[in-house]
Design a protein around this nucleic acid. Structure first.
Lengths: 204, 204
DNA sequence: GTCTATAACGGGATAGAC
DNA sequence: GTCTATCCCGTTATAGAC
């Protein structure tokens, strides 16, 4: 086991962190290699010792972002015992996704905010990992439907996309919010999607 | 009243339409004036007869996008009679926002997807209009709270942001979905936020 | 109104010194 | 490993012809 990082590995990581931050703030095309290099006190040309191209850099940010999100969600799901209800599972999945998104905001928001605006090659290279994660969510709602946990007239497909939209959009506004914990936020998100906002038995 | 458009006005609009489409697909920084000009069979230099700069072009796209969304929402709200419940109002507001977003997808998605990735001057110039629209939604939920329509333990602020996230994210995935009408989609969105997805009285 | 030509600049990427 | 120097290309914007 090799916990000590070589200088090469440390710098590699610092560059990737800086790239993620700038890609998330200014977009892929709005970020120059020079600005990434400046963020780590280097010259632009030096980056090529660590990365073969700007595309490669973005690629690595994307892959890391998807890995962080999916593995955090898996961790939260694994905390559940076998008798967990659909509500518990959805809450855990949302908690994992939100923790990942808001804790590793540079990576995940770089991924989310540049989605669909990247060179085709970069986009396609990250598609398989994205699909695999999406498949996890599809399965979650399919199981819930089979178990009879969700209303029959709710479109599962739309429900999933709605939840994704809410969660992902939080990476845009979260910085402004210092008062709420990520855990509380995730719980409140889940509550809205599980029970809606109307007062019980009320329709006004 | 002047319905006839001059050639100048027609071309101006065609250029703006092309810019909105490309800004939405490739982002502000990823879009060159040359590609906008090509989309309307012109040379890049000729655009400057109609617009003073690339920033100005983006500025106009943003303003038009916000105007379209807010005015469509107002139109839907005005269709309600005075006795309308909070449910009716929320449904109408969501319907208006969704109709605007999905019908004028080039403009609205150019605005949504480039949010926070634009030059400061461009961003700030559109802030007042954005704030005004946000204020409409804030007021909607404040009235609902006073009227006792929403659960006391629901965070109004988060609820609004969640709904915005869901709606805005739909501009990312909607192209893939040809089977559902915008009206039906909006109604389903509203239903999820009003009533949640759980089967009544169920918590599994 | 639109064209062509061009100025002025910044971008990604490479080569070789150290 | 990082630097400097440089190549080559695309970008925004302007000027003047038509």
């Amino acid at each position: 086991m090799q916990l000590m990082q070589t200088k090469r590995e440390k710098t590699h990581r610092m560059v990737l962190d800086a790239a993620a931050k700038l890609f998330s703030e200014q977009g892929y095309h709005g970020t120059s290699l020079k600005s990434i290099a400046e963020a780590v006190n280097m010259q632009a040309g030096s980056l090529y010792y660590h990365f073969s191209s700007k595309d490669q850099l973005m690629q690595d940010v994307l892959n890391k972002s998807i890995y962080i999100i999916y593995s955090t969600v898996k961790t939260e799901m694994n905390k559940l015992d076998e008798a967990a209800s659909f509500s518990d599972k959805l809450k855990a999945a949302i908690r994992g996704h939100m923790i990942a998104i808001l804790t590793y905001a540079d990576y995940t928001s770089a991924s989310i905010r540049n989605y669909g605006q990247l060179p085709d090659a970069v986009h396609y290279a990250s598609q398989p990992a994205r699909d695999e994660y999406e498949q996890f969510w599809r399965a979650l709602f399919e199981q819930a439907e089979i178990a009879g946990a969700i209303r029959a007239d709710v479109d599962k497909h739309l429900l999933r996309l709605s939840i994704f939209g809410s969660m992902n959009w939080s990476s845009v506004w979260f910085n402004a919010q210092q008062n709420t914990s990520v855990e509380a936020l995730a719980a409140a998100q889940a509550d809205i999607f599980l029970h809606g906002c109307l007062k019980q038995g009320q329709n006004r």
